[in-house]
Simulated assay, not measured.
Amino acid sequence: MPTVSANGITINYLLEGDGPETVVLVNGLADELETWDGQVPALLEAGYRVLRFDNRGIGKSSVPQGPYTSRLHADDTKALVDHLGLTDFHLVGTSMGGMIAQEYALAYGSDLRSLTLSCTYAAPGPYSTRMFRLWEEMAPVNGIPFIMRDVVLRAFTVPFFTERSAELPQFEQASAFMEMSVEAYLAQLNVILTHDTRDRLGEIAVPTLVQAGEEDIIIPVSLSQELHTRVAGAEWRTTRGGHACLWEFPEEFNVALLDFLGRQRKTAG
């Protein structure tokens, strides 16, 4: 996969398809660009060009000293899309990626045709903050693969473990062989601990979809609903699953996403 030097770091990215409109996908905490393997084929089939990349701190992108912020990651994203000459694109972020996408829309909204914020919040609140502080304390002691085992348990719904056990090894093995350092993990974890756009979301002026997994307990649905109420004119959609709904029920997630994107296309209406 190609890399570029942008915003003082090296960013590993993958640009696929040749459609007239581009969808830019932004990953969550401790997730590489493969996060979107369940979505990219559907987006390409729908005629979009798709850009995905490793955030700073993970994968084949640079791992500079932290802590990182959602605005810093948004500036990385801006530097990448500018290098590639992309404008008037659809920006989609999940979890931490949704926080980065919020900051991008606030700082560089004129770049965007639409904004999708998936399984994310405007600010963490007391419940999520306590969970993330626990991970922060556990990571130096137990290591990142141990933390990711806990994430898997919380991210999927209970029926997934009983009814689809054959699919579990791919997620558990990915967690077991995580190569992310503790320092890089903590640098990214700071993003979700410090992110707060509550007082600025009224400035977002692009068509926006806020989507949540209806059983999300990592980022409770109530926090996504609060985010939705703060973005003027935003659409609201839930899909089956928890925080990992885009992995557990990718078809339903894709239907919701493509329905929204399709209504924002240049040819729509």
Rank of each mutant, 00 (worst) to 15 (best):
N7Y: 13
G8D: 11
I9F: 08
Y13V: 03
L15D: 06
L15R: 11
G19W: 03
V23K: 04
V23S: 02
V26W: 09
L33I: 01
E34T: 09
T35G: 09
W36F: 14
D37F: 09
P41F: 04
P41A: 09
P41D: 05
E45Y: 01
E45H: 12
L51P: 11
R56F: 05
G57N: 09
K60L: 09
G66H: 10
P67I: 03
Y68G: 03
S70P: 11
R71P: 14
L72S: 13
H73N: 14
K78P: 11
V81M: 08
V81D: 08
H83E: 15
G85H: 12
D88F: 03
V92E: 02
G93W: 01
T94L: 11
M96N: 07
M96Q: 13
G97S: 10
G98N: 05
M99T: 13
M99H: 11
A101K: 09
Q102C: 06
Q102E: 10
Y104A: 07
Y104C: 10
A105V: 08
L106G: 10
A107E: 11
A107M: 13
L112K: 08
R113Q: 11
L115M: 10
L115Q: 07
T116W: 03
T120A: 08
A122K: 07
P124T: 12
P126K: 15
Y127G: 10
Y127Q: 14
S128I: 12
M131K: 14
R133A: 10
R133D: 12
R133V: 06
L134E: 12
E136I: 05
E136L: 07
E137F: 09
V141S: 12
N142K: 15
P145C: 01
P145A: 00
F146E: 02
F146W: 14
L153S: 13
R154A: 15
P159C: 08
F160G: 01
R164H: 14
E167T: 00
L168S: 00
E172T: 03
E172M: 04
Q173D: 00
A174Q: 02
V182R: 09
L186C: 12
A187Y: 04
N190F: 11
T197K: 07
D199T: 15
R200D: 14
E203N: 12
I204D: 08
V206Q: 07
T208V: 03
V210I: 08
Q211A: 07
Q225M: 13
H228F: 08
R230Y: 09
V231N: 05
V231Q: 06
G233K: 14
A234S: 15
W236R: 12
W236T: 09
L246Y: 06
W247L: 09
F253D: 02
N254T: 01
N254L: 01
L257F: 02
L258I: 03
A268T: 04
